[in-house]
Design a protein around this nucleic acid. Structure first.
Lengths: 356, 356
DNA sequence: AGCTGCACTGAAAGCGTTTTCCCATTGCGC
DNA sequence: GCGCAATGGGAAAACGCTTTCAGTGCAGCT
């Protein structure tokens, strides 16, 4: 009954945890039986033994060793989530969606932050591959042209059965969510044109980002269709942050004071621009200048004036991303478009003087 | 040289990953040698063999199986982070700090969200214990009176060598970070008193939360010292969210229109209160009513008027929390106070008419 | 030449599980 | 009353790795 108690080497190890063996011993059953009771095995165990095992496990506060389990089953309940910066409301919204689905599926989420270092994405995929994560959600926007290292890592991950969903990436051999960036850009162009703006400034994020490109091109495309051309010097590139937006707005208005509308390619930058217009440039919004953002972060309706922006259902994107990765593997790679929607608030109005 | 190739049962498993065995075989060395090259062992291997192994590993895109590694070393490079809601700027700021330290220590972060369900904290600790996480940061504020289930889980975790830091918890047998909640509450009382406010409303979060209690009592304590008493009916309890704050502000002003200052126990609620005052109650801030928040989320300076609030260095709290958990185990349990600081902005001013 | 000591490699043990295989017992039909 | 399927329990294999232990070859010494 207790024939399996073995001596073990006295290597310096951390204080050891309760093992199934100990539970079995306390319950007076074999290891196999204990396992069958505690893991949901398809074999049955007598009521009697079952209770004994359960009681022993509870008394010892036993929890099964997940790595050991992972080893034998060669699968885990871990999913990875790779973002650029957790403290960015865009990503934390996506993360919330991912976590919700993870909770419902009893999965654990491994959160990796690249801190905007491009190379780290591939590295984290590798680490999650090492962890034998079931799935990975690449929430951070990709870089135009893709990254060979990342692609290779993803292939290796897929080869071992890992599933991946990428959000706003291009040419990756995985399920991809395409947020309505282009379409949102178009809507903004339409809105500003309709209000009568012709002198429009654009504050871009890093042009290497897929989502920046999409938003920008959507806008330019539609603007062109409506006969508005945005001069090269009315476009500035900035960090995708509040401070980036603020500095960019100042630069832009110093250079081209005649601008009557400002399209910031995300809300964070729009917030910065709002601050710049108010505190640094002394322009009032929307009377002097209209401002549009992108993302519709919760803040957007708390600033004054409330920000006109493009709503991206970020939590839903997170949810869909994980669900996609958890879903049917054979259909992969799929592409899922998530629409965006213009939300007009108080930060946009007709330009101060009639155009022309 | 390749004597260890074994037959394996044809159980249906996911497409299998590259193993060290395969690398060894390709490199023409033994498993042991390959391991010595790829794990940073203290044994050395000839230059020649080393290169062969490295090359084979690279070619096969080998990454070592973390669960297997964890099993034999009985430790992992995983740390847990338990929050109530990732999409809450308070927690994402703490998370950012934790992730920063994790990155520097090459640790992976497992993020668990309780979605405000109290019981889930203990459950997640158990799951992280099962994962053999090295450390856990309990970022979500605790409940007054503590939770026996949580305490027991933490003890079990500690018993197997796990380290824990709790933020704003009480009576837990682990390292604890005590944010300057009480002290911040006192500072707010002082500030409002100095401006001449005597009719002060308080929007509390769930009173069961330790941080709510601390903030509230700090405030009341100092207010009392200064001869101001906050009537019971000037205090309302609300969800710790923007919407909670908004609804509470409306309730409060309907009931007690004479209030000249409002202390919301966190910024999210203060934002809601601001919205309520502006949109629902038609009061101007700070001319009619002063508003104070707590946390100093990034939003605080983007709203109009910019919010007077108590700054809590959240990222630093996150950093310190993980560092504490990673640090000297023998000194545990320790307590680390992190000071807060009142940040006066534009949302507070003297009350509309002189008191008395 | 024969040994000692050194430097390295390889075989094998073991980490804590799940699962397979085998055995013992029971219930059933004939 | 006997064989046979069905049931449930235990021993042991296997998962992929690290590490110990036991070689093996070779230089350096006596």
């Amino acid at each position: 009954m207790q024939s399996q108690v073995k001596r073990r080497s006295a290597r310096p190890r951390p204080p050891s945890a309760v093992t199934l063996q100990q539970v079995a011993q306390v319950a007076g059953v074999s290891l196999a039986t204990a396992s069958r009771v505690l893991s949901d095995s398809n074999r049955n165990v007598t009521q009697e033994l079952q209770e004994r095992v359960l009681e022993a496990a509870a008394r010892l506060r036993y929890v099964s060793n997940a790595p050991a389990r992972a080893l034998v089953q060669s699968t885990t309940s871990i999913v990875g989530l790779i973002v650029h910066d957790v403290n960015d409301a865009y990503y934390s919204a996506i993360a919330a969606g991912v976590m919700e689905v993870a909770r419902d599926h009893k999965l654990l989420v491994m959160l990796a932050g690249t801190f905007h270092e491009p190379g780290l994405q591939a590295e984290y995929v590798a680490r999650l591959r090492a962890q034998r994560a079931r799935a990975v959600v690449l929430a951070g926007s990709g870089f135009t042209g893709g990254s060979p290292a990342l692609t290779q890592e993803l292939e290796a991950f897929a080869a071992q059965g890992g599933r991946v969903t990428a959000v706003a990436h291009q040419d990756l051999p995985v399920d991809t969510i395409v947020p309505g960036n282009r379409e949102g850009g178009r809507a903004v162009a339409e809105h500003l044109a309709q209000l009568g703006h012709t002198e429009i400034g654009i504050i871009c994020g890093p042009l290497a980002l897929v989502s920046v490109q999409d938003r920008l091109h959507g806008f330019l495309e539609r603007a062109a269709e409506l006969g508005i051309s945005v001069q090269e010097r009315h476009r500035v590139e900035a960090d995708f942050t509040r401070d980036g937006g603020r500095a960019a707005a100042v630069r832009l208005f110093r250079r081209s004071p005649g601008i009557t509308a400002l399209f910031a390619l995300n809300d964070a930058m729009a917030l910065g621009a709002l601050a710049a217009l108010r505190d640094d440039l002394g322009r009032s919004v929307p009377a002097d200048v209209s401002v549009v953002g992108f993302d519709d972060l919760p803040v957007a309706c708390d600033v004054t004036p409330a920000l006109t922006t493009v709503r991206l259902p970020l939590e839903e994107i997170g949810r869909r991303a994980l669900l996609l990765a958890l879903g049917d593997a054979t259909a992969s790679p799929r592409t899922l478009a998530v629409p965006s929607r213009l939300v007009v608030r108080a930060s946009t109005a007709p330009p101060p003087r009639p155009t022309g």
